[in-house]
Each structure stands twice: as C-alpha cells, then as structure tokens.
C-alpha cells in the first residue's frame, strides 16, 4: 500500500475533525489580545519616560532609548540582583547601546518585532499546548470510538499505519507554525502598521558562568530572525508532537491523553524551578523548550544550556517517544 495515500487519509481525518479550526480560533483571539497588550504597554512606557524627562514630545527616540539604557545601568548597580539576572540585563543594555551607535530606532514597534516576540513568548507553553490539542487524540480517539479496529483489519502492517499518522502529524505541526506566522503577521500589521522586516537585530549573546559573552554577536535582519525563531518553534512542535503521539498510543481516552501531556509539560517546568541545581533537570524536555532565548540572549531556566544541547535533548525525547509508540502500537492487543 502506498504510504502517501495513507498519510493523505490521516491528514484528511485531522482536518475533518475540525480541531485545526479550533486552533485557528484560539490563535486569532490570543494574538489579538497579545497585540493589543503589547501596543498598550509600549505607549505607556514611552509616556512614562517622557513624563520623567519632563518632555511632551516622545518623538525623539534617542532620548527615550538613552533613558532606558540609564535605567538598566542603574539596575545593574543594585547589589541584590543575582549574577544570572545581571547578565541578561547586560544583554539588553548592550543591544540598546548598539541601536544608539548604529542609529536604529528600537522604540517603534513593528509587525516583524511582534511576530518574533510572539513566538518567543509562546514557544515554551502556548505552542506546546496547541500541539497537544492537535496530537493527543490522533490514536486515542480511534481507540475510544473503536475505529482502530477498522484500520487494523486492513491488509496494512501496523507500523505503516502508525508511520502514516506520524507523518501526518509532522505535516500538521508545520501547518500550525505557518498559521501562527500568518495570523501574527496579519493582526500585527493591522495594529502596528509597519513591517520592519529589514531592520537589524543583534543576536548571539551567551551567558557563560554568569558572565556575558559577546564574542559571537551577529547582526541579522528582522526577517531572518523571524525565520530562525519560527524554525526553532517547529523543532519544539515536532518533539512535543511525538511525545503526545506516544501518550495517545499508551492511553485509551483522549481526555487522559491531553491531561497527561499538559500536566507533564507544566509540572516539569515547576520541577525545574525548584531543583534547578540538580544535574538531571537539564535533561528534562521542559527546561529545553525556550530555544528562542538563545537567539535573544534571555536567561535560561537552567544554567549551562546551549542551543545545540537543547535541540539535542528535544530530539532525543522525540526519538525515544517514537520508539515507545511503535513498540507498543505494533504489539498491543485490541481488546475493546
């Protein structure tokens, strides 16, 4: 049997289940709120700074940026800020200095900036939740409704059936990422009214032993930066999807499947807060989800992670989950 026609069937089933439309709805509502919030905060900070400087005119971005830089430097003088926090403030200060030196206006908020911000904010929780919503019923729904018996009594080996589901899921993860990009672009363009895809972004800061390492910094265009963040988003979607697939094979009910995935996603994040000193936490998938922070130079929940390490851990989890899923799916008895 041709694998692509099986994959086609699975994609067709997922689309007809209308889950994807639920995801589109959630995205539109959430991105709308996020864009409004972002817009509102921007205006407030600007007017606050302007007020403090005693000027009415907030058009001069240099003044505002200078003030933000001063604020950051003042915070660095605070002896109570931990070493790790210090480094991330340094990154932000460094970025502002760069903008001043290169004559780039960082205060105008562009659609492009919103798009990358949105992915940075979604990658560790919102995006995984969407993928869980999409993937958790891919096998369990067939078990609950009994249609698994229809599939498994065709002259098609079981591994091929699961492979078709896995490939369909991989395609739909891509579609979710694309939907996020398209909806974020549409809404932010309406809200902020200016693209800004060519503006430069500096990336490549690293925090090594609590110290800022600026030796690898690079300037890329905002468009490239967005491409990078959404690609990293896809890696997260890919590995979370495979884990959800495994849970979907292991438990019969979709509700249980979604519950298990959500609680391990959120529970693991809590765990990493409390026992971040423990070596083993760095191998949890939860602490390695913030891939985009390696680009922006933000603080990682566990020290000493690197982009390649985190991607490696995520892919290993995906691989292990896939192996378990295939093992169980190929041998399990369909009893009810």
């Amino acid at each position: 049997m041709k694998l692509y026609s099986l994959v086609g069937n699975e994609v067709f089933k997922i689309i007809m289940k209308k889950r994807l439309w639920v995801i589109v709805g959630i995205l539109i509502i959430l991105i709308g709120l996020f864009a409004y919030g972002e817009h509102y905060t921007r205006e407030r900070t600007q007017s606050q700074i302007a007020e403090r400087l005693g000027i009415d005119d907030v058009d001069d971005w240099r003044e505002i940026t200078n003030q933000q830089l001063l604020d950051l430097e003042r915070r660095l003088d605070n002896p109570f800020i931990p070493e790790e926090g210090r480094a991330s403030i340094q990154v932000r200060a460094e970025q502002l200095r760069y903008y001043l030196a290169e004559d780039i206006n960082p205060t105008t908020f562009s659609a492009a900036q919103f798009m990358s911000n949105f992915m940075e904010q979604s990658i560790f929780l919102f995006l995984p939740l969407l993928i869980i919503l999409l993937a958790s019923d891919i096998v369990s729904k067939e078990s609950t409704t009994g249609t698994i018996k229809l599939l498994m009594t065709r002259p098609v080996p079981r591994w091929k059936i699961l492979t078709s589901k896995l490939l369909a899921l991989t395609i739909l993860e891509m579609i979710v990422i694309l939907l996020m990009a398209v909806i974020a672009l549409g809404i932010s363009y309406i809200t902020f009214g200016h693209g800004g895809f060519r503006e430069p972004v500096i990336t490549g800061f690293r925090v090594v032993n609590g110290e800022l390492d600026a030796s690898n910094i690079q300037t890329v265009s905002r468009g490239t930066y967005i491409f990078m963040t959404y690609s990293l988003g896809y890696i997260v979607a890919f590995s979370i999807g495979k884990m959800a697939l495994m849970v979907s094979v292991l438990v019969k009910s979709t509700a249980a499947s979604i519950g298990i995935m959500m609680s391990s996603l959120i529970g693991g994040t809590f765990l990493s807060f409390f026992i971040s000193d423990w070596e083993i936490t760095r191998y949890l998938f939860n602490v390695n989800l913030r891939l985009t922070d390696f680009l922006s130079g933000d603080l990682q929940p566990v020290e000493g992670l690197s982009l390649s390490f985190s991607i490696g851990v995520l892919l290993l989890w995906a691989l292990a989950a896939t192996l378990v899923a295939f093992g169980v799916f190929s041998y399990k008895d369909i009893l009810d």
Binding site: S5, L6, G8, K13, G146, T147, L150
Partner: peptide
C-alpha cells in the same frame, strides 16, 4: 464503528484506499 465526522462515502473511500 465508523468515523462519525465523515460521510458514509468518505468512510468507504478511506477504507477502500487501504
């Protein structure tokens, strides 16, 4: 058991393609 969110014909089509 059939896929109840699909039509009868779509069900048959999926199964026939296998």
């Amino acid at each position: 058991e059939m896929y109840d969110y699909l039509s009868g014909w779509e069900n048959l089509k999926i199964l026939a393609s296998m």
